[in-house]
Amino acid sequence: MKTIAIIPARGGSKRIPDKNIQIFGTLPLVVHSILYAQQNGSIIDEIYVSTDNAEIKKIALQFGAKVIDRPAAISGDLEPTVSALKHVLESIDSNDVENVILLQATNPLRPENLLAETFEAYQKENVDSLFTVTRNHQKFGKIINKKFTPFNYTIGQRSQDLEPLFFENGLLYITKASLILNDIIISENAFPFEVNHIFAQVDIDTENDFKYAQFIQALNQNEG
């Protein structure tokens, strides 16, 4: 049975025009996820890019990924990611595909050993899906009727004493293909794999996100 990687990369982007082919470092943004998948060839059998864009398709093929042309009907702003994943599985011979690894193009920086560690946990925990999370140390609250009400702390409480809260960082997801065919990426028994790494803070959606990601990439290269 196979494990495949799917990288959704549509052409439309309102906040950053042509976001997925903007140069990040020295390469188009989508290429970073393709190369990451290739570096994990001992786990990933095939790499697919799902796109509705001719330029993204050209770049993906140039860097060795297979491309599935995504219909306009499932390429809109409000379309859930699972639609693209399901379409890929329905477009290929997926009878022998057991696992799908979702790599988002908007998360170009990932710890080198992350996939090996998460896939090992995925198999050891015997779950049907896994996603990466990061602990948040901020103090949250709600503003209702112009009044601030703390959500995860009490006024005066130290940050280090907060009850742990985590956020879905988007670095990667691993899911049974059978779940995706039923429109599910994160199942009820999904394993939350904790990643406390600076790369977990990078998820490109706005120009400021892009600049922050470039800063983190440069910082990492200088330290390396």
Rank of each mutant, 00 (worst) to 15 (best):
M1V: 13
A9R: 00
R10I: 04
I16L: 07
P17A: 08
D18F: 04
K19M: 05
K19D: 02
I21R: 08
I21A: 00
Q22K: 01
Q22L: 01
F24V: 04
P28L: 00
L29S: 05
H32Y: 07
S33P: 03
L35A: 02
N40W: 13
S42M: 07
S42Q: 11
I43Y: 14
I43S: 15
I43C: 14
I43A: 13
V49R: 05
V49P: 06
N53L: 00
I56W: 01
K58H: 05
L61F: 06
G64W: 05
K66I: 00
K66W: 01
D69I: 03
R70K: 03
R70S: 05
P71L: 01
G76K: 08
D77C: 10
P80C: 14
P80V: 12
V82D: 13
S83K: 13
A84V: 04
V88A: 05
S94N: 11
N95I: 04
D96A: 12
D96W: 02
N99V: 14
V100H: 10
L102F: 12
L102R: 12
Q104F: 08
N107I: 06
P108H: 08
L109G: 09
L109W: 01
R110H: 10
E112C: 08
L114P: 03
E117F: 13
E120G: 09
E120C: 09
Q123T: 12
Q123I: 14
V127K: 15
F131Q: 14
F131K: 12
T134A: 11
R135T: 09
Q138D: 05
Q138G: 07
K139W: 06
F140E: 06
K142M: 07
F151C: 00
Y153S: 01
I155A: 01
I155Y: 04
I155N: 00
G156N: 00
Q157G: 04
Q157K: 09
S159R: 08
D161W: 04
D161L: 07
N169Y: 13
T175C: 15
K176L: 15
A177L: 06
A177Y: 10
S178A: 15
S178L: 13
L179W: 11
I180Y: 10
L181Q: 12
I184Y: 13
I185P: 13
S187W: 10
E188Y: 12
A190D: 14
F193I: 12
V195F: 14
H197R: 11
H197Y: 03
Q201W: 06
Q201H: 09
Q201L: 07
V202Y: 11
D203R: 15
I204Q: 08
D205V: 01
T206E: 02
D209S: 04
F210W: 11
A213Q: 06
A213R: 06
A213T: 00
F215H: 04
I216A: 07
L219H: 04
Q221C: 02
Q221W: 02
N222Q: 10
N222D: 03
